[in-house]
Design a protein around this nucleic acid. Structure first.
Lengths: 111, 111
DNA sequence: TTGTATATATACATTATTGTAAGAAATAAG
DNA sequence: CTTATTTCTTACAATAATGTATATATACAA
């Protein structure tokens, strides 16, 4: 477990970025993830996580346009790098194999 | 993300404990996980993780018998608590829904 | 031209997770 | 009864992940 992978929170943010595609910017990620986790998250925590993941090569970003509704600062749109996709897939596979190997009662619902 | 859940490593150990059932003790967990991750792990890291997870209510433990082969200290056999199962399942479900929501190219292989 | 909504940026702080190393306990073999 | 082997224990250390608070930027609207 040497080479840093993704923390739990970071992994969730990363997946959310992929889900949101062109809409993947701070506040929208917050809303989406809060709904999925059914739990409040701070914008700050998400913004800093995004920056750090960019530094670590999991995300890239570009400027988007300002909100049409009312005004506001331009959005920074994030997207996952190939490396991030690879790491996500690896984590998924390892967990999937473990689930398969677990004695029943866990192989129920979803996927 | 307040109430502490599981770190990535801890989650993997927890799943391995469930997979190994009555064989879930330090060294065996190490072997199993090293094989699955294709990566060396230190026994110490695993032993301390097990202790901590027990303190946090994810695991319980009991004494097993000594190795038949050659001798050695008695094994401490771990097993997952209902709470641990619940947390694992929740994490699985949240990730599964995210995978479902992701644009293709990721919905391939396994599960 | 001021207010307000929408966003990002960043410095700082805290907490959690993971890792190391040395040693102690238990047991079977010789 | 001494040794080799297996395993756990513990104290300590390092690093990584997460959170907070405040400031700054932008744009529309009145």
């Amino acid at each position: 477990m040497k080479k840093t992978r993704l923390g739990e929170f970071q992994e969730l943010i990363l997946m959310t970025v992929i889900v949101l595609k062109e809409k993947a910017y701070g506040n929208e990620i917050q809303r989406e993830l809060e709904e999925r986790l059914n739990e409040r998250l701070s914008v700050g925590a998400i913004q800093t996580a995004l920056k750090r993941m960019e530094e670590k090569g999991f995300l890239t970003s570009k400027w988007g346009e300002a909100t049409q509704k009312r005004g506001g600062k331009r959005k920074r749109i994030y997207s996952a790098t190939p490396y991030a996709h690879q790491v996500l897939q690896e984590m998924k596979d390892i967990r999937a194999r473990l689930w398969e190997a677990m004695p029943q009662l866990h192989t129920n619902n979803l996927q």
